[in-house]
């Protein structure tokens, strides 16, 4: 009887264990359900992939068409200006030469620039000669030529402050337009680039300027060489501040 119960117990235990063994084990229904779901998902992905491939292909075609159009318009523009590989290369070299020279000139001090005054005019002539060519109408050259012109123009004021005797002069402009006062004149890049040197201009023009706060439009001022204030200029500055502190 005991053995019967024992056997029965073991059989039931085996039954329970076999049915419960491993939670991962799926039933046929679960398998079917997962198969259906998986197949559905896979099919949807296949369709999506096919659609994406088609869209990518059409985008690539569109981009290739745009590239072709851009290239065609650029070629037309160059042809219009009579551009060839050879003449564009030569033009580019010539333009770069003038640009380099003007850049070098713009780095010089006023005195050094005055010594090489002729190069500014030579650069202007070369620039004008390049600007007359049909290639200059092309945007990439047109923009560079304009930039070059403004650089050359930037060098001219330095030459303008030198009179026929080789002395530096400056003609006072109006306050409304040029904001010219001794402080602002000394501050100009082509004068001293240092506003604190204004007493130099004052002292060099004592006959014209009795009151440094008052200079007049059209006055031609002597511009002494740049450098530290001399003792005479320092004294004049000291006296000027003393007078102003009393006011």
């Amino acid at each position: 009887m005991i053995s019967q119960k024992l056997i029965l117990f073991f059989l039931l235990a085996a039954l329970v264990l076999s049915s419960c063994s491993g939670p991962e084990k799926m039933t046929k229904d679960q398998w079917q359900q997962e198969m259906n779901q998986g197949t559905k998902e896979r099919d949807a992905l296949r369709i999506e992939l096919a659609t994406l491939t088609k869209e990518i292909d059409s985008l690539q075609v569109l981009l290739a068409t745009l590239d072709k159009k851009i290239s065609s318009v650029n070629d037309e523009t160059i042809a219009m200006a009579g551009g060839t590989k050879a003449n564009m290369h030569a033009f580019d070299i010539a333009l770069r030469g003038v640009e380099t020279r003007v850049n070098d000139l713009s780095l010089l001090t006023r005195q050094d620039l005055l010594k090489r005054k002729g190069e500014i005019e030579a650069s202007q002539t070369e620039k004008d000669s390049l600007a007359k060519q049909k290639l200059a109408a092309l945007p990439k050259y047109h923009d560079r030529l304009e930039a070059l012109q403004s650089k050359i123009d930037g060098l001219r004021p330095t030459l303008a402050v030198t009179n026929s005797e080789g002395e530096d002069t400056y003609v006072v402009g109006s306050w409304s337009k040029n904001h010219d006062c001794l402080w602002n004149i000394a501050k100009k890049k082509n004068i001293y680039a240092n506003a604190f040197l204004w007493p130099k201009i004052w002292q060099a023009n004592r006959k014209k300027i009795s009151n440094p706060d008052k200079i007049y439009r059209g006055e031609k001022l002597m511009i002494p060489q740049p450098g530290a204030l001399t003792s005479k200029e320092k004294i004049a500055l000291y006296q000027y501040w003393q007078q102003h502190s009393h006011i």
Partner: peptide, 17 residues
Amino acid sequence: AKLAQATKDEEATKERL
């Protein structure tokens, strides 16, 4: 945008010429 710029450049070149 590149194409539009190229077309604009072409017009500008024509005008300058």
